[in-house]
Simulated scan of single mutants.
Amino acid sequence: MNKKLLNLALVAIATMLMLSCSKTENGNVEYIPFQETDDGQWGMISMDGKVLFKDEFKNKPTIVRDGRFFVRTKEGVWEMYDASEKPKKIGDDYAHTSGFRNGRALVAIKNQPVSIIDTEGKIIKKLDKIENHEVDGVRAYKGNYAVFMTVDSLWGAIDKDGDCVVKPEYYSLNNCGDGKFIGVNAKYKKFVQKEQKNKVKISVINTTGKVLFDFSADKYENTQNQFTDGKLAISVKKDGKETWGIIDDKGEMVVKPSSKLKSIGSINGDVFTYNNGDGGV
């Protein structure tokens, strides 16, 4: 989704995923829930149409990743099950869960901090504090990394084992995939709040916490929220018209914005799809 760069910090806070079960942005989906009738119970079916089980749950389960799925009970808690013909409950009862990504899920038992668990329900790490900051919330994993926010409204990132890879030094931080994060350092907070775009620097950070490059918030009109193969689609506005181009992970322009690039779709290596505004691609 395209976002204005000045709003990057504000949108991140407004849309933080506090352990949502509804996200399907990454990871291999093994089964999806289905009903045989509109008022029937729920079962699971594979992506190629093979029924795993049917008429098992009254409430709709989550999708299956890593052989696990979650179902919310009438009491409002989430239970974890294995993806088998006769699903077996595993682990504890959870107030919140992210679902699994690469063998890890973020969960919260009632009145306890967020924890990372494995597919057997074993707690890998409790995320009550990170880098001596109390944790307020954690987004779902994207790849092997998850963004977190502290109670003092600082953002950072952890890996699949809960180790901090980006210190909580940011006013906002987004996991853009491909081992990249886009963030606004907390030192620019007052300029963001005053909407002084020319005084705000946006940073592209790797999974060791190193800032790869910075750019001014008023340099680009929009950016895609996804790095792919070391590239990021950006747009500029000239003569009242928005055109798109592509930069690399050094901040260098590899495809200059052009009037024929009204939008950019997917990027794959050195090729990409685009729309020229007339329905042509």
Rank of each mutant, 00 (worst) to 15 (best):
Y81R: 08
Q112H: 03
E85M: 07
D159N: 14
D93V: 08
Q112E: 06
V254G: 01
M44D: 08
K260R: 08
D118L: 06
I116A: 03
P168E: 02
K250P: 00
D270S: 10
N185G: 11
G179Q: 07
G183P: 03
D248G: 06
K210I: 00
K238S: 13
I264K: 09
F191R: 06
A108W: 03
S235A: 14
F215T: 11
F70E: 06
I63D: 13
K142Y: 03
T15V: 11
Y145C: 09
Y274W: 09
N59E: 01
D178H: 09
S84K: 04
I124G: 09
K256N: 06
S235G: 10
M253I: 11
F69L: 00
K237C: 12
S263N: 12
Y170N: 15
K250Y: 01
K167C: 01
F100I: 04
S258Y: 04
N132S: 13
K60C: 13
D239N: 15
D48K: 15
I124D: 02
S153E: 12
F53W: 04
G162I: 05
K241N: 06
A108R: 13
V151A: 04
L261R: 12
K167S: 07
V29I: 15
S115Y: 01
D92W: 00
T207I: 06
V211T: 15
D178P: 07
G40I: 03
G279D: 00
G121M: 12
D55G: 09
G43T: 02
P61N: 01
R104V: 13
K60M: 12
G137A: 15
Q35L: 09
G103K: 01
A108Q: 15
K4N: 07
I234G: 08
N276K: 10
Y170L: 14
K167N: 01
I247A: 09
F272G: 05
V255N: 03
N222Q: 13
K197F: 05
D118H: 13
I109T: 15
K126V: 13
K237T: 12
I246M: 11
I182T: 14
E134I: 13
G91P: 00
V64K: 05
I158K: 05
D248F: 03
Q196P: 00
D214S: 11
G137H: 02
N144P: 05
L17V: 01
N206Y: 03
V147P: 03
D55Y: 09
V255E: 03
G99E: 03
V211W: 06
K122I: 12
D128P: 01
L232Y: 03
G277W: 05
L212V: 01
I202A: 08
L154Y: 02
S258M: 07
V135S: 14
A95C: 07
V184F: 00
K194N: 07
K201R: 03
Y145V: 14
N2L: 10
I123P: 08
I246H: 05
K122A: 13
L19H: 07
D278R: 08
I117Y: 01
D278S: 13
G91S: 02
D39E: 12
